[in-house]
């Protein structure tokens, strides 16, 4: 029963949504309005999942004093202090909460991703090899597209941006379209599997 009832709910609601896509009747509109109100009221609680999992992971690390457990203390302290700052002094600009966002969270998350520029340059040098005919085509397409995007490319020759646009509009388009059709069918199949109760991994383990 612990599985059946949720599955019945998803089947019923899911097929009502399928019907809602096709039938613009008042009942269908009312159903959607009801769903919106309920979904909105359920949604804030989802954040508790993230908080709990973070506390569980780092709490265990601290308790067991695993190597580098001190950093887990920093994570939890950061979490508690930031949340406290938001509740105590508000979330408007100029508050400690926003200061933390602007000077701690924002610069660090931006920098984290920018590290990838170094890695991709190093990979381009060490791993991007014309080992076969196919790899050579990939390499040439990449180089033309890279040159085509920057002002210097157009300065070298007007053919570079034009060839780059052609690559994107013709062979790339064909490749991405074929993959997209496959993915679209995959999404539809997965959605149907969820609605029919065949795909159940999202329910988690247990009975």
């Amino acid at each position: 029963m612990k599985r059946q009832i949720p599955l019945i709910i998803i089947m019923t609601l899911g097929f009502m949504f399928v019907a809602h896509s096709f039938i613009p009747h008042k009942i269908s509109v009312d159903f959607f309005d009801w769903f919106q109100d309920w979904a909105k009221a359920i949604s804030p609680f989802a954040v508790s999942l993230g908080i709990m999992s973070l506390f569980m992971v780092h709490g265990t690390k601290i308790k067991r004093k695993v190597p580098n457990w001190q950093y887990s203390v920093i994570t939890l302290a950061g979490l508690i202090f930031t949340a406290f700052a938001g509740f105590a002094w508000g979330t408007q600009s100029g508050t400690p909460y926003m200061w933390l966002f602007e000077n701690v969270q924002m610069p660090m998350s931006a920098t984290m991703f920018s590290l990838l520029a170094f890695y991709i340059a190093s990979a381009a040098y060490k791993a991007f090899r014309a080992r076969s005919a196919e790899a050579t085509v990939l390499l040439v397409a990449a180089v033309v597209v890279m040159l085509g995007q920057v002002p210097l490319g157009a300065m070298i020759s007007k053919w570079i941006p034009e060839t780059s646009t052609w690559i994107l509009n013709v062979p790339n388009l064909a490749a991405k379209r074929a993959i997209m059709i496959g993915v679209g069918l995959g999404i539809t199949a997965t959605s149907l599997k969820i609605l029919l109760g065949i795909e159940r991994t999202y329910l988690g383990g247990g009975d």
Binding site: I120, A121, A124, R129, M146, V150, P151, G153
Partner: peptide, 23 residues
């Protein structure tokens, strides 16, 4: 930023070429 982008792209293409010549 696009100025820097130009130079960085040329530099990465140079890396690709150098890596392949070496290979």
């Amino acid at each position: 930023g696009m100025n820097a982008q130009s130079v960085a792209h040329i530099m990465i293409i140079f890396f690709i070429l150098l890596g392949n010549i070496g290979y």
